[in-house]
Amino acid sequence: MDRRATLMLAVLALLLAGLSALWMFQGLGAGNRGFILSLRATKLAALVTVAVAIGVATVLFQTVAANRVLTPSIMGFDALYVLMQTLMIVLLGNAGFAGLSAGPKFGIDVGVMTALAVVLFGTLLAKGARDIPRMILTGVILGVLFRSVSQFLGRVLDPNEFAVVQAVSFASFNRVDAALLPVAGVLTAVAVMAAIRLSPQLDVLALGRESAVSLGLRYRALVMGTLALVAMLVSVSTALVGPVAFFGLIVAGLAHGAMQNARHAGLIPAAGLIAAILLVGGQWLFERILGQAATLSVVVEFAGGLFFLYLLLKGRIR
């Protein structure tokens, strides 16, 4: 990595450290410090995990798809996760499956999700290489289909329970399931490490299929492996906060902008750091200063959607 990239990463890391400190200690009253601190630490850990997962997943996915306007959730990854979860409940029956504790259950979810995603999106990407807009549209509609089926199954399982529908329709950074956090954190860390180890090969992958193959890369294996990592990361973020369609787009855009060169060894950590800075900073701003914790996800989606339209209008779809 060149000096500039190292410096940039250091600056980003410092910024994140500063924001985290601010998050932890700002406005800490006299009473009950221990309790508040542990509460805040849990939330911080959750935010960072989700952010890193989304940021890295998006960078990886954009490299595989050779396209800078895509994110895994635009293509329906998170909807697939939600559907898969619902299906697990239907197929395995509430009793046995729910009996498992959160950790192993999540592990199974992620395993199945990864397999499904590799097959489905591997096919889609392979077929769609020639007509990218059609592939995107397919992904978006697949997402709608998955969501609709999940809602339908949710309704059929429990006609009075509207919460299912709500939960899969909106993201919320406040509704983090603390029990999942340790597993989620470990999974994210593993996936990110793997991605960083793969980064020299990802650099070649980013040159496009033809060049990658002629440079002797095991193209198909790498694509599948990367998609598996993306699936793991998306499972983590979706399980923790729900669907977040456009956040990754902003993060990946900023990461490419900040690093200037497209080396994944720098790009991946940068994406993780930038995502964490945005989420921790944003949550701090909205929760502590504006007093509207619930709205961050909406604002993020709004900004991300506008950014996407901007990219479309600039003709950057290819």
Binding site: D131, P133, R134, I136, L137, V140, F170, A245, F246, A294, T295, V298, V299, E301, F302, G305, L306, F308, L309, L312, L313, G315, I317
Partner: peptide
């Protein structure tokens, strides 16, 4: 939008409705 890109039109529409939807959600909240 760049002309001739048939599929960009529905994509732009879906994203636009997503953006407008988030405005509605925001105000609703």
């Amino acid at each position: 939008l760049p002309a001739r890109e048939v599929m960009l039109i529905p994509i732009a529409g879906l994203v636009l409705s997503g953006v407008l939807g988030s405005v509605v959600t925001f105000i609703g909240w």
